[in-house]
Design a binder for these strands. Structure first.
Lengths: 150, 150
DNA sequence: GCATATACGACTTTTTTGATCGTATTTATA
DNA sequence: TATAAATACGATCAAAAAAGTCGTATATGC
């Protein structure tokens, strides 16, 4: 949820970019996030340099960089630790595994990692924001070989 | 770990396919998995129809289907619940989200889901087993735009 | 009958996640 | 300068999930 909540808040700030700070109260309400929990998340985002804040009356949060200069990958990586589906194919969160030298399925996860990073590190908040919301039919239509769902 | 352990055991059985059962003791030793924990995992694999077993002396586990007929996607999906990176773009593990109708970043996760399912549901244990282990350099070399690791 | 397997439910421990609380500090404005 | 409304931030809690252990029943081959 933390990553999800962080992204929700960030995109609200993208929408309001250049129009002054937005208080947490408002961010929490609009994005359906517990306010006291969001406080911590916003604080993280601030310490990571993506947002800045103004205290006091008329204060709140706002983006510290242009929406074109914050990448989805960076955000997710900071909150989840890494983008990779498994630690043994991660760079940021690499953890040695005893099976590495002969593991066969590691390559499958590496393939997925490569795709995830390619997509996520090319997607800025600005370009993602410009896209259209997903239609339900897009979630349902899959070219799964076994038809077993996702 | 459960999914990881399950895959390790399965690939050991792929390697031994057609050469009789392998006891848990052996599966646990070779794959560096706690034996008592692996018992449960093997039982799951059996109930899901992917392996079969023989009790008693000279007993153990063996694949119940040909390695060409078990897909990575099926296995991961059964252990992790779903392949999707987030529940709102999953079919198997779909969970409604209040933000769906206007969420912008959902499309990014949908894109990733599509790739994951495409790869995983086309990869049988046989084809994956035939591949070469991953070299360290393949994990390190990334075409990350920000160079921030993975 | 004995050694060696699997079968399986109950249980424990650890880790992670999600969230709340209290309180200090800062700022605008009346 | 008082006050209302913000952020700042550590402490703490609770629930859930994950990881792993234990005891014991049952089946099988020799």
């Amino acid at each position: 949820m933390r990553t999800d909540y962080a992204l929700r808040a960030l995109f609200t700030l993208v929408e309001a970019y250049g129009r002054g700070p937005i208080p947490i109260r408002e961010l929490a309400r609009r994005n359906d996030v517990p306010k006291r929990f969001l406080e911590h998340i916003m604080l993280d985002l601030k310490n990571l340099g993506w947002v800045d804040s103004l205290p006091g009356k008329a204060g709140g949060y706002f983006l510290a960089r242009q929406p074109t200069e914050i990448m989805m990958g960076e955000v997710v990586r900071c909150f989840d630790g890494y983008l990779a589906p498994i630690a043994c194919v991660s760079v940021t969160g690499y953890k040695r595994c005893t099976q590495e030298s002969f593991c066969r399925f590691r390559r499958v996860f590496l393939d997925i990692r490569n795709h995830v990073t390619r997509v996520m590190d090319r997607a800025s908040l600005a370009t993602v924001f410009a896209g259209a919301p997903v239609r339900d039919s897009e979630v349902a239509n899959v070219d799964c070989i076994d038809g077993g769902g996702i």
